[in-house]
Design a protein around this nucleic acid. Structure first.
Lengths: 222, 222
DNA sequence: ATTACTAGTAGACGAGTAA
DNA sequence: TTTACTCGTCTACTAGTAA
C-alpha cells in the first residue's frame, strides 16, 4: 500500500500535469507546495521513483517528472474512493434521537385538507393527524444540517378562514421500515435539534413509542 | 493544512459512512484498514477530533464517529483536486522526441486518393504527401500509450490495384501551432517509441527541421 | 473487548555540504 | 541554481499497561 504522504506528493505532480507529459518539478517547488523541506521533497521523489510510480529525467539543473501508468492507477484508485464517498446514489443518512412531546401544532396542521391533499399526492400517503417529535442526539445534529442540501418536496401554503398557512417542506424517510417524512415549516426558525415526522399511521401507536424512547430515522436518497 | 495521514484516516471514516451518520470505528478496525497499530489509529482519531474534523461519542465499549462539516469540506477539497486531475476537459498531453527519417512509406500512402479524401473530410486538410517521423523520448513513451484511450479518427482502408490498404487511425494534434495528426496503421505492430505525423504542409520545410532536432507534439482533447 | 496512557526505539525530518 | 548525500535531533511509531 502506498504511503499517504507519497500519494499526496503524487497528486501534486498530477495536478501539475504529470499524467499528461513530463513536468518540471524541483524539490524546492514541491517542498513549498507541501510545506516540507526541499530535502524531504527530494526524498519523496526518490521514494516515488523506487516504487515505479513516476519516471524521472534528472539533469544538473533540475528534473522532469512523468507519472507512470502504475502511478496513475494509484491516483485513480484514490479518486474512485472519493467518488464513492460523494456518490449521491448510495447516500443513506441516519439520524438518532429520542421521542419528545411536541406542542400539538402538528396535529392541527396535518388535519387541514389542503396539506393532506398535497402530502397524499407527493408522498403517496395521507398523513395521520399528528407528528412524531424527535430530539436529535448531539452528533446527529450535524447530519441533520446536511439534509438541507438534498431535494425536499415543497408543500404549498394556502389561505383559509382569514388565516395564512405557510409553505412546508418535506423529506421522505423511514423509521423502522415505516415510510414517513420529515416536515419543516417554511420560513419560521425551527430548532436545529428537533425533527418532526409525518406518517400514514400514528408512529407512536405503530411502534409502541413513549417519550424518551430512542429512535433511528433513515433517509435514503434515491 | 491537514496532514496526509489524517486525511487518509478521514477518508476511511467517510467510506464507512461517517458523513451520513455516526459510525462505529474502533482503533483496531481502523488500524487494520490502514495497516497501522491500534495505538496509532487511536492517536489519529484524537488528532482529527482536536482539529474539529470529527465528533466522537466515546463509550467504554467503543466509539461512534461523525464527520463534521469542516471534515467533509476537507474531503471535498481533496475530491475536487482529483476531479481536476482526471477532468477530460483540460486534458492536454505533451510528447517530446527527435526528428528521424522514416522509411518513406508515409509519403506513398499519403499520396493515395482514398486516404487523402478521408483525411480532408475528417481532419479538415489534405495531407502533404509525406510524414514526419519522431522518435519519442523515453519518458514520452508512457504518455504515448495513454493516448490510445482517447478518441481516434478512423480512416478506412480500401482495395486498389489488386492490393489491400488497411485501416488507419489518426489523432489530431499540434506541433508548434501547426495543426497535424498522429497516424497509426490499423493492426500492424508499430514501434512504441515512434510516432508519424501528417500535416497539410511539409513540416520539415515549414519548421525548418532536420534529423535529430528536438520537437514537442501537443494533443489537446477538446 | 474497548480507549489511551507511558516508555523506549526506530525512522523521518531539516541543516549543512558536496557535486 | 539544482539533486542528494551525511549527520544529529526529534518526532512518531509500536509495545506494554491501566482503566
Amino acid at each position: 500500500m502506498i504511503m499517504p504522504e507519497d500519494l499526496q506528493c503524487l497528486k501534486v505532480i498530477a495536478l501539475a500535469g504529470g499524467c499528461r507529459g513530463p513536468v518540471r518539478v524541483s524539490s524546492q517547488s514541491l517542498g513549498s507546495e507541501l510545506s516540507i523541506s526541499p530535502q524531504t521533497a527530494s526524498r519523496r521523489l526518490q521514494s516515488l521513483e523506487r516504487q515505479m510510480l513516476v519516471r524521472r529525467d534528472i539533469n544538473p539543473d533540475g528534473q522532469q517528472i512523468t507519472i507512470t501508468s502504475a502511478g496513475e492507477e494509484e491516483l485513480r484508485r484514490e479518486y474512485s474512493d472519493y467518488c464513492r464517498v460523494f456518490d449521491r446514489e448510495n447516500a443513506h443518512y441516519v439520524l438518532r434521537g429520542h421521542v419528545i412531546t411536541g406542542l400539538g401544532e402538528g396535529r392541527y396542521y396535518m388535519s387541514l385538507e389542503p396539506y393532506q391533499r398535497q402530502f397524499r399526492k407527493r408522498l403517496g400517503f395521507s398523513p395521520y393527524p399528528g407528528t412524531l417529535n424527535i430530539r436529535l442526539d448531539q452528533s446527529s445534529i450535524q447530519i441533520r444540517k446536511r439534509l438541507d442540501l438534498l431535494e425536499w418536496t415543497r408543500i404549498s401554503g394556502f389561505s383559509a378562514d382569514e388565516r395564512t398557512f405557510g409553505d412546508v417542506r418535506c423529506l421522505p424517510c423511514r423509521i423502522s421500515d415505516h415510510p414517513c417524512g420529515i416536515v419543516v415549516p417554511g420560513r419560521s426558525h425551527y430548532p436545529e435539534d428537533i425533527i418532526e415526522l409525518v406518517a400514514p399511521v400514528s408512529l407512536r401507536a405503530a411502534l409502541g413509542l413513549s417519550d424518551n424512547d430512542e429512535v433511528k430515522v433513515e433517509v435514503a436518497y434515491d
